[in-house]
Design a protein around this nucleic acid. Structure first.
Lengths: 157, 157
DNA sequence: TTAAATTACTTAACATGTTAAGTTATCTGC
DNA sequence: GCAGATAACTTAACATGTTAAGTAATTTAA
């Protein structure tokens, strides 16, 4: 297209921000979207967003979690969690029970139809994941996970 | 809080999706947010979103880019690009010129005040980046970039 | 030459992220 | 007890992402 991208390491010392077009947030975003693309179309067939699927997965793993706990694990903010649980409850995929000892809290449970939906989606999801692992390499994926975790830890300090 | 998280590698063989709470999209998102947090507050002082800043950075690097080209480089979709350029133009940070030979296209240019804004923000941005690099380690960052790029390439096939 | 297809961009509509304000319930210190 | 602080969630408002439809300019091909 045009004749740029020919120099990679011969940066003159006066470039102000750094090699352009290369920023951690952009690279992370791009990678995330590339991965998500592999899952989203399948989820969409069942009218689930990635976020809703996350919630269902965590509930399948451990029933009866409270909203705040779930939000933290799913890496969602409370307003999103609120919206999602309202939606999933309306669709009969989860049920909600107020905690007797603290009526501000509510626990969420996967309903039977939620479980059925999970069991429909999970296998294909696992298969896609397997495919990604094979394409990219088991060790590299693990290394990537580790780097990402370390990055988060490093930046928290 | 509760007694979970004590097993990490002793997974029974029947776990369906994989170690829970560990998914590539979530890890990538979390890392991205951790990084962005370091920049956003500074950008906000100048009323810029990360996306707007991206556009300005690319224009600073190469003036007169067309919208589609910019959108591709900034990893933005055209509707977002359209909104952003309208906003930046209204604020006088960029100017837009219709291409004579093809009046559908328009080229974008950083205005003087856009350049001034850039030069105000860039140093601190570079400094933050430098800080991240030091906290996390130069080689690890480079390795991370490489893995992310490779992941994207692997998934495209 | 001109009707159909394509391209560059815009607009609209809706999902999601995010901040702040609101509600109701629980806790704290007096 | 009880007023004030805090906590768990909800709602509202607005920015952004995303898909689809719309518009206008250009290309194509009969």
């Amino acid at each position: 297209m045009s004749q740029l991208s020919s120099k990679k390491k011969s940066l003159p010392a006066d470039l102000p921000v750094r090699e352009f077009g290369k920023s951690l947030p952009m690279s992370l975003l791009r990678a995330r979207e590339a991965v998500m693309k592999k899952f989203i179309s399948h989820l969409k067939k069942h009218d689930l967003s990635p976020q809703q699927w996350r919630v269902i997965r965590f509930l399948q793993q451990e029933d009866g979690l409270e909203m705040s706990e779930l939000a933290e694990r799913c890496f969602l903010m409370m307003p999103s969690m609120s919206r999602i649980s309202k939606n999933l409850e309306a669709r009969g995929l989860i049920t909600r029970k107020t905690v007797a000892s603290d009526q501000r809290r509510s626990e969420l449970f996967l309903s039977d139809s939620g479980r059925i939906l999970y069991s429909k989606i999970a296998p294909k999801s696992a298969e896609r994941y397997e495919h990604i692992t094979q394409q990219f390499g088991e060790e590299k994926i693990e290394l990537l996970y580790q780097l990402l975790d370390e990055l988060v830890v490093a930046l928290k300090e």
